[in-house]
Design a binder for these strands. Structure first.
Ligand SMILES: Nc1ccn([C@H]2C[C@H](O)[C@@H](COP(=O)(O)OP(=O)(O)OP(=O)(O)O)O2)c(=O)n1
Ligand SMILES: [Mg+2]
Ligand SMILES: [Mg+2]
Length: 369
DNA sequence: TCTGGGGTCCTAGGACCC
DNA sequence: TCTGGGGTCCTAGGACCC
């Protein structure tokens, strides 16, 4: 009996969904972002592989993307369409034999399986059938990573792309990852990598053997050891399919024209609060704390939080609280972005499981305890 | 080129209480 | 009377990911 962790991730997900309904775009550079207008303040959500060949990638300002790939087709983000596609994909993943599925986002999931014997070829065969099933059900291509931990499976997927399967286990971890920069790890970004480099750890292999005391000094007693384990490819070996319970819902908008008038700001905050309340009502959990995010021109961003005396579903209360937080800043520069977020009342007994995997937080089973 | 919108989790410092 | 320590709650800020 062998336990495997698989990680599935759709190829160029939202661009692929767009191409399905516009077949004439197949094989062409497609860039999805903002309202699809490259002259606006927005960034690339994703680019098709043809567009990536021009150096376009997620997070890049649309304006710059347009300069790099002038022939590309720009499309607006249509979140509901991607939710629908995602649900079909995940239903297919869950329908695989004995699959324990943990969804990580729109386009990816961990899949825990147990197979007779310990032949990795069986796991690869399962992975290939999974890719076939997703393609057959949704006409979307994906890649699958096969690993012995979540961390290895997740990273393996990158090597499988596009339309492939890749195996990354204790056997080949250092061979494949050892000489790569620490940013290749899930959960190590530019900033953490720079701090690691400051202590002489540039590669995954170096991080794996790093002095624990030094890491604790730099990152604290939780995250220090966590990063070392990441360097070793260690992570959960069992997938937990406990349904995800959201912590918060928020809405934010970058205005194409900066807001300067009080009435505009009040109306904008009210509109955001209304949308947020729709989401938390759907969830059936009241807002316990209100977050107000604001970006003043040219680019200064800050967030203020207030715990409410009483949890509420009342959009007017949330809007009023947000406006109050904004006034408390005593800053009257033009406003470029406003965001309202409702942190919801935790369910009875708190969040279960507490602080697990993914969702953008510190990756792969953060320390917790 | 000028920087989105949806999220999550960790750390740290001050207030307050024991 | 002064000082220290520990726990918990709250908010601000940072970092990362899709
Ligand atoms: N900064 C980002 C990154 C991603 N996404 C969205 C659009 C992507 O299509 C989707 C999935 O993210 P992936 O990282 O999996 O990227 P893709 O699926 O687009 O490409 P790949 O084939 O590399 O997985 O999430 C986004 O909006 N903003
Ligand atoms: Mg993807
Ligand atoms: Mg993904």
């Amino acid at each position: 009996m062998a336990r495997w962790v698989l990680h599935v991730d759709l190829d160029q997900f939202i661009a692929a969904v767009e191409v399905l309904r516009r077949p004439e775009l197949a094989g062409r550079p497609v860039i999805v972002g903002g309202r699809g207008d490259p002259s606006e303040r927005a960034v690339v959500s994703t680019a098709s592989y043809e567009a990536r060949a021009f150096g376009v990638h997620s997070g890049m300002p649309l304006r710059l993307a347009a300069r790099k790939a002038p022939e590309a087709t720009f499309l607006p983000v249509d979140a509901p369409a991607y939710e629908t596609a995602s649900a079909e994909v995940m239903a297919t993943v869950r329908a695989q034999p004995a699959a324990v599925v943990q969804v990580l986002g729109w386009d990816e999931a961990f899949v825990g399986i147990e197979l007779d014997g310990d032949d990795v070829a069986d796991a690869v065969a399962y992975a290939d059938r999974l890719r076939e099933a997703v393609l057959a059900a949704t006409r979307l291509h994906c890649s699958v990573g096969v690993g012995d931990t979540t961390v290895r499976a997740k990273i393996a997927t990158d090597f499988g792309k596009p339309r492939g399967t890749f195996v990354l286990t204790a056997d080949n971890w250092f061979e494949v990852m050892g000489e790569r920069p620490t940013t290749a790890l899930w959960g190590v970004g530019k900033r953490i990598a720079a701090r690691l480099a400051g202590r002489g750890y540039e590669t995954v292999a170096q991080l794996a053997e790093a002095d624990e005391a030094a890491l604790v000094e730099e990152f604290g007693p939780r995250m220090g050891p966590h990063y070392r384990r990441l360097g070793q490819g260690l992570g959960a070996t069992v997938i937990d399919d406990t349904p995800w319970v959201a912590r918060a819902h928020g809405r934010e908008t970058t205005y194409q024209r900066d807001l300067t008038e009080a009435v505009e700001v009040e109306a904008a905050v009210a509109a955001l609060a209304d949308q947020v309340v729709e989401d938390i009502r759907a969830e059936g959990r009241a807002c316990a704390r209100v977050h107000l995010k604001v970006r003043f021109a040219p680019f200064f961003t800050t967030t203020r939080i207030r715990k409410l005396a009483e949890p509420t579903f009342d959009a007017a209360v949330i809007a009023q609280t947000a406006l109050d937080l904004l006034r408390g800043l005593g800053d009257d520069r033009p406003i470029r972005l406003l965001g309202v977020r409702a942190e919801m009342v935790p369910p009875e007994g708190g969040y279960e499981p507490p602080r697990t995997t993914g969702r953008g937080g510190p990756a792969a089973t953060p320390p917790s305890d």
